[in-house]
Design a protein around this nucleic acid. Structure first.
Lengths: 198, 198
DNA sequence: TGAAAGATACCGTTAGGTCGGTATCATGAC
DNA sequence: GTCATGATACCGACCTAACGGTATCTTTCA
């Protein structure tokens, strides 16, 4: 809040603060409502500083998105590391992370941001590329049709919990759904009975 | 295009034209890029006319959204009327309509608009209410957990085809997925074998 | 001292919205 | 019929505000 003038200069820290504040504002009201003035004010810095660190608003936003995706990426990696079963490992991690409580319940704010991201073509590209890369990387273990169905359902659930802007429902059957989806990934594995993978 | 001044006044027609042009522009470039000036120009009227028919831009946009939802609603009703099997009738119609080719392939333009709609809280409310109403109406025939899963997967597929901004893929396995989802709705019906509805 | 970091003041654009005016329409009286 | 009259439909110039971005000047650090 206080002016950062006659203070010890910490460029990296300011840059991080800018990124964090931008993410926070975007989370609260969506990307469209996020203004550079607002970010500067939240970060206790002036526009001069912001435009010193980021060439444009677009650059700032892309930085935020990359951060977010990196975070998601890391969480998925962590979830995969805890899973002994190779078949469908990525899909399970994906379901686990995207349908994890903090992601959904915490104000449902992630929603606004994610949607805003998808609304902008340039940012959509980033997400799209990440998805494609991740998918091709695990094609060997997660290429089955039933696994794709599971991931689609997870996306749909994410979307559904996103659309209901009434946070009255305390995320009702989310855990049940997650368990069911995880079970589906295991039911289709090679050593299992119902083996109908395409 | 020509000025509608010394012309026979047709308020309803102008209103409709405004709505249609707004929808078209929103489809082409997303809601955020849709400007009242643009709509007026496309409709061959001035801002005075627009703000005479709609109290604000928000009102115009809400009108567009309501129109769109009404259209979707009608398509679903039509699909349901063609379906003899009561169990899961709504879910099948939902899958059929949302994953229908024109909705997806046609320039992928619906995507931009739908996403824009979901990005704005006020509009999200409209969609949310419609969903809730429709769901509660068919709770008797479409309340099963496996049907919910099918609808979620349809939503996920819709989202997936929406995110890929590369229209290079000619909607690959869409028909297969649709068939699979429809089959799932029929497999779980009372007279069938796998009867595990909750 | 000179380059990086940040502040302050300013600009050009563009958007949604307003406002007074004008043309057209629906009436009812005569 | 037609003519006054009030309401509706529409025009078009103007307003205001906020946004992203720039230019320049000051402070801090190595």
């Amino acid at each position: 809040m206080a002016s950062a003038s006659h203070r010890k200069k910490q460029p990296e820290r300011v840059r991080r603060t800018l990124l964090d504040c931008a993410a926070k504002l975007a989370l609260e009201q969506g990307l469209a409502a996020m203004t550079v003035q607002g970010v500067c004010h939240a970060a206790g810095v002036t526009k001069g500083a912001l435009f010193h660190h980021f060439a444009s608003k677009q650059a700032l936003v892309e930085g935020v998105v990359s951060d977010l995706i990196g975070q998601l990426d890391a969480e998925i990696d962590a979830a995969m590391a805890r899973d002994p079963e190779p078949y469908g490992r990525y899909t399970r991690a994906y379901v686990d992370v995207t349908l994890h409580d903090p992601m959904m319940t915490e104000g449902g704010q992630w929603a606004a941001l994610h949607i805003s991201i998808l609304a902008e073509p340039a940012l959509r590209r980033i997400v799209s590329d990440w998805f494609a890369e991740r998918l091709s990387r695990h094609h060997g273990t997660d290429g089955g049709a039933e696994l794709e169905l599971v991931r689609l359902a997870a996306d749909g659930a994410w979307l559904a919990y996103l659309v209901r802007d009434r946070p009255s429902d305390p995320v009702p059957a989310l855990d049940a759904l997650r368990a069911r989806l995880v079970a589906m990934t295991l039911a289709g594995r090679p050593g299992s009975a119902g083996d109908d993978r395409a």
